[in-house]
Design a protein around this nucleic acid. Structure first.
Lengths: 195, 195
DNA sequence: TTTTTGTTTAACAAAATTGTTTAAATAGAT
DNA sequence: ATCTATTTAAACAATTTTGTTAAACAAAAA
């Protein structure tokens, strides 16, 4: 139970997130994390006691932030079009910074059971789904079961980023060229929805 | 170098794939795998020498099979519509059986470097992309850069399956109900492409 | 049946990873 | 200056995971 927060605790946490979420190294050891953060491994235990607890903290924060990101945009005081535009912008930015965040979450859930995911903030997803349905009835977007609209949107945003190491191989593209390809998608997805 | 093949080697490999690809337990130990296969852990070393080599074998087979699945459909002697229909069917079936196969591949690549992915069979992806472009010019499908068409297709097929533990939470759906939701997508995706 | 060969197992050894402890050094705050 | 909390280093212990070995076992060949 440290009292002063000199930033080391945050540094360790941020580094763990970088390794797990950005570098996709899901098997990273406490030594890996300590090295990357430039701190002694004992500091990691000083602040988090065990590896499992560090992972739990990272998991919970990540899950909460994900819910909040989603909730904030969905419940924002904007037109539907603006909401979708912001959803795309916010999540594309997040995916680019942290491609493997969802992969980490799902892997942890698969390892430790669905209990992990309990006690997560409510997300106003149903209200948003109603809004989606309204837009479909108005003819502004293609008709389909609203939950599929939402899954489609996130699929288009996320999957190519996550699978970039494989796609780059299939397409024989450099890191830079593929990043360029991904950057095109923000426009593309928006236009595809509101064509 | 075992001579007789009693099936144990295949059993161990198949079990490892089940744990990694189907259950998504990417941190599984040799003991986990041996237990699940119902064999002594030493048998695992007898056939694969080390954990790393077992993982390498699983990785390479998975990568090769993925390429072949893709290549077989893309280079098949069928109309474009039929190819797309088969792509959807084949990959939806594969995703349902092995949701975390790609996740495993990418995690391994992130852990061990892109070298892993070298020496993979050529996939006739460029020929297929040309075909996609032709179909766009004919007006059969919506116009966009062909590579995005391909990424979109696989995104829509794969991502909801992979993220099912998270989506089930957001949508508050049971395992069965969500499986039903996913089953709807095969039709949905096909119709969306050829609307 | 004995031998041979390949398979499987239990027990053991080695290595890697995690967690603890102590002492000393550092740095801020009072 | 003293006090308190933080950080490091280093050594160590405990645990987990991996890897090895020798013996038991099974099945087919000689």
């Amino acid at each position: 139970m440290p009292a002063k927060d000199t930033g080391t605790e945050q540094l360790i946490k941020a580094t763990a997130k970088r390794i797990f979420f950005a570098e996709g190294k899901l098997h990273a050891t406490t030594q890996d994390i300590a090295n990357a953060a430039g701190v002694n491994r004992a500091a990691l235990h000083y602040y988090f006691r065990t590896r499992d607890q560090l992972v739990a903290v990272v998991f919970n924060e990540s899950m909460r932030e994900l819910s909040e990101r989603l909730g904030t945009v969905m419940a924002s005081d904007q037109s539907f079009k603006e909401k979708v535009r912001e959803l795309i912008a916010v999540f594309m930015k997040e995916m680019t910074a942290y491609p493997y965040q969802e992969t980490f979450l799902v892997t942890e859930i698969n390892t430790s059971g669905m209990d992990l995911v309990k006690g997560i903030n409510e997300v106003p997803v149903n209200a948003f789904l109603d809004e989606v349905e309204t837009e479909m009835n108005t003819g502004n977007i293609e008709k389909m079961p609203p939950r599929h609209f939402l899954m489609n949107l996130f699929s288009l945003l996320s999957y190519p980023v996550i699978m970039s190491p494989i796609y780059r191989q299939f397409f024989k593209m450099s890191q830079e060229d593929f990043a360029q390809l991904l950057a095109e998608r923000e426009q593309l997805i928006y236009q595809h929805i509101f064509k």
